[in-house]
Amino acid sequence: MFTRPVIVQNSAARTWAAVARIDHSGIGLAEPDERDGMGAGLAELCEIAARTELVDTLALQVRTVPDDGAERAAWEQAHTRADAAPLAARVNALLGATLTPAAVRTEAFVTVVIGESRIGRAAKESGGGVDGRARVLHGVMAEVESALRGPVGCTAVTWLDSAALAAAVRTGFAPGDRGQLIAADLAAASGAQLATGVPMAAAGPTQARAELRHYVHDAWASVTDTILLPDSGAVLGALAPVLVPTTAGERRCLTVFLAPLPLDRATRLVGREDMSATTGNELRARMGFRQRARQRRDTERIGTADEKLAAGRALVRPAVAACVTVPATWPVDEHGRRLAASVRAAGFVPLRLDLAQDSGFAAAAIPLGVGLPNRRGRR
C-alpha cells in the first residue's frame, strides 16, 4: 500500500517497537459466545507472540477522548444548503451545541515491543543494521496483524507512519489539539493549501512538571494509577468502567501490558513454584499445621498453569496502567480520586504512582511501548 510504518527505537531500554491503530466494534453489544471467541483470540495472540520468541511486550492502549466536533463541523460545512429551513438549522445547531461537549470518541492502539537481545541474531541473518531489524519486525507485525484481524475481531489494523505516530503522541500530551489536526487534514483533502500534521520534534510538551501525585504538561494535568490485578483473574471487559469519564472534558486512558514469557523460561518458573508449593505443603503437614485456603488456591493455580503449558499455552506477565487527563485549571486531585473510585468500582485495587507520575503517564497515555521494567534474568 506504499506506506512506511515507523519503527521506534528506545536506546535506553534497548528495544524496537511498531505501533498500530486498530478499529474494533467493542464487546458492549456482543453475545456471550462472541465474547468468549474474542477472549480466546486474545489468548491466541499472546501464544503467537510467545512462540515467536521475539516479542517482549504487547501493549494494548484505549483512549476515551472528548469529542471536539471537527468531523461534524466539516460535514456541516460541506452539506449545508442556503435554502434550508431556519427551524431545522436552528435545531441542528442546538443539538450540536448540547451533545458535542458530552460526546466521547474511543481510539485504540497496539504496540509490539521487541528487545535488542532477542532480535539481534535474527537481524544479523536478515542483513544487519536498522534494515535487518526492520525486516524481522515486519514479519512479527504480519503475524500480530493476522491475529488481530482474525479471532480478536478487529475490523481495521493500520500501522502508523512517522506523521501519524507524531499526531498520536501529540494528542496524548494535548487532547485539545486533535480538533485542529483533524480540521487541517479535512481541509487539505478538499484541496486547500495548508500545512497538516505535526513534526515529531514538536509532538511532546513545550513545558512539563512532575509533581508529587500528578503530572503537568502544557495546559493539561494528568494522574496515573497502576491497577493491582487479582489472583483469581478477571472477565473480558471488567476494566470498562475505568474508561468512563465522570464529567465532560475529561480524558481517560488505559494501557494493558502483556509480556509473554518464552516456553523454556515459563517451564522453569512453573517448575520452581511447583517444587516450592509441594515442599511447603509437606512441611506444614509434618508439623501439624492445617493448609489455608490461599495456599490451596496457589497450589491449584500452579497445577493449572503446568497443565496449560503442557498443552501449548503461553505464560503471560500482565500489568495495567490507567490515566485521567484534565485541564490544568481543574481540581486535579479530585479527578484522581474519581479515577481511583472507578478502578475500585470495577473490582480492582488502584495504586497511585507517587514521585513517578511522568513515567507513569508515558506508560498509560503515550503509545510507544514504555511500560514494564526489565528484570534480572530476562533474555
Rank of each mutant, 00 (worst) to 15 (best):
L339W: 00
V112P: 10
Q61A: 04
Q207D: 15
C46W: 07
V112Q: 05
G377A: 10
A88R: 07
I182D: 13
H79R: 10
A13K: 12
F361Y: 14
P205K: 05
L29T: 06
L181N: 09
L243S: 08
Y215R: 04
R90K: 14
A208Q: 13
V136N: 08
T255Y: 00
V198F: 04
A102P: 00
A362I: 01
E300A: 15
A166E: 09
D56I: 02
D83N: 13
C154A: 03
T279D: 03
W75E: 14
A97P: 07
N374P: 00
P151F: 09
A85T: 07
G37T: 04
P245E: 11
A50C: 12
R296Q: 06
N281K: 14
D68I: 02
E143F: 08
A322G: 11
I114Y: 01
L165H: 11
V152C: 12
R178H: 03
A82D: 00
L243G: 07
R290E: 15
D67R: 13
D67K: 06
A314M: 05
I227R: 12
M38G: 10
M1F: 11
A168N: 13
A187W: 00
G69T: 09
A238Q: 15
V19A: 06
R296E: 06
S146H: 11
A189H: 08
L94T: 13
L87N: 06
P373M: 08
A340W: 01
E76W: 03
Q295F: 02
L160Q: 12
M200I: 14
R294F: 13
A93G: 10
V242I: 15
E71R: 15
S117C: 05
V244G: 11
R301C: 02
A362L: 15
E143K: 12
A240W: 02
I182S: 09
A259V: 01
Q357I: 09
G191L: 10
G127V: 05
A189M: 11
R292I: 01
R72N: 12
A156W: 00
F348Q: 11
A341W: 01
A346P: 13
P5F: 06
T246W: 09
P373I: 04
A93R: 13
V270E: 06
V152R: 04
A184L: 02
A248S: 14
R178S: 04
T226R: 15
L186I: 03
T206D: 14
A192P: 07
N92L: 11
V65Q: 04
H217W: 05
R286D: 13
R317M: 02
R251F: 00
R297M: 08
C46M: 05
G127E: 14
D218I: 03
A183C: 09
D225S: 04
D185L: 03
E145R: 15
R105Q: 06
G115C: 02
S11A: 14
A203L: 07
F289G: 01
A189R: 09
T52H: 06
G172C: 01
D68E: 10
A167K: 02
G336A: 11
T279A: 03
V324I: 12
T299H: 15
N92A: 15
L315Q: 07
R375W: 01
E307G: 03
G153L: 02
A187M: 06
R90P: 00
